[in-house]
Design a protein around this nucleic acid. Structure first.
Lengths: 189, 189
DNA sequence: GATCGCCTTGGGCGAGTGCCCAATTTCGAG
DNA sequence: CTCGAAATTGGGCACTCGCCCAAGGCGATC
């Protein structure tokens, strides 16, 4: 059916958009480079999407949503050590100048200038923090809600700084971050 | 003398640029809106600066440099409690959607796409981390170098998340962040 | 095989972009 | 007061932008 090919084009546009946001920055993604990257004619962008703005929002949101929910799935029910390994793993999976890390930061900034994106991102982060707080509660971290908020933002801050601080590697940062979980996992050093 | 007025125009352009980077994003600053904001003719931008790129770099760098060095001046020689108050104070001075916070994040992202800006920002952050580490060493924080790196990036991460997490206030985050300084200031709770 | 609706193409519109430059104003040095 | 360099103006060039649309291709249904 013809609709299937159309769906595939939509998909390719969204995938290309996510990559281009990281490469060129949110405002640097134009309809023409986007269409070229996706391998379609320039007119197709506004056939499948009402505006470039909404295309970018959807592309960023679904990419971020996939990352967050995949992480959350691994975290729920994990032991203290498994959870720490997961955080450590994500810290060297995302180096700070990889497409995913940059996409997150670009989206945070764009949310400050787009109310709709702001609402959606607020919800996505709230879901993630709730899961992170649940995990922390289950392993006995003090003040799990606030700690989850601080740890989540600290990880994003590390992504932001890492490209500007060559010696800020995951294995260096993790022992320090572990102090945030004071009282719960000290014996596991 | 005429040179004085010219210097003032250069100044106004740089100030306007810093404000516009925060408002419209790095790529959203055009020569014409910049000139209008600064109250000068559009042609003056390229009379005082070789390119828009270099103007933006200089505007961001000197603004950030002022913030960093002002903070560093207050920090050096401060007691543990004074230092903590300073950090706490900076956390509610910069809410995350104020011009200064946004400028920092915009500059971090732009540095990933501009080698010259990348080098300058790397140096600026290295200076600040060195001072922060010295302060930590002086009050007995363990692993002061790494802790300084992590705390500096965590603070920027908080700025990034704050607009998307209404309940992430300074007074909530600070007690948790204090755990990073484990062993040095516990008795000061 | 004709028909019809979804999909795709590529060009075009007005606006905005960075950068340039001839013409003009400003103002301190002689 | 005159001169000349520094500073400023505003328009123009070549290009890109988001969005639109007439035209045609495609494939499923009778």
């Amino acid at each position: 059916m013809a609709t299937q090919r159309a769906q595939e084009v939509r998909e390719r546009l969204l995938t290309a958009a996510a990559a281009l946001i990281a490469e060129r920055g949110w405002a640097g993604v134009s309809t023409r480079v986007l269409a070229e990257r996706a391998g379609v004619g320039p007119g197709l962008v506004h056939y499948h999407f009402p505006s470039l703005r909404e295309l970018l929002n959807e592309a960023a949101l679904r990419t971020m949503s996939a990352v967050v929910h995949e992480g959350a799935a691994h975290l729920s029910g994990a032991s203290a050590q498994q959870g720490l390994d997961l955080l450590l793993g994500s810290l060297d999976a995302y180096s700070g100048d990889d497409p995913t890390s940059v996409l997150f930061t670009e989206a945070y900034l764009a949310a400050g200038r787009d109310e709709e994106l702001h609402r959606a991102l607020t919800g996505l982060l709230a879901d993630f923090r709730a899961l992170l707080a649940d995990w922390m509660r289950s392993i006995g971290v003090p003040e799990p809600d606030t700690t989850a908020r601080v740890l989540a933002s600290a990880v994003d801050g590390l992504m932001l700084h890492r490209p500007l601080d060559p010696s800020l590697a995951a294995e260096a940062a993790v022992p320090v971050l572990r102090r945030l979980l004071t009282g719960a996992v000290e014996e596991q050093r």
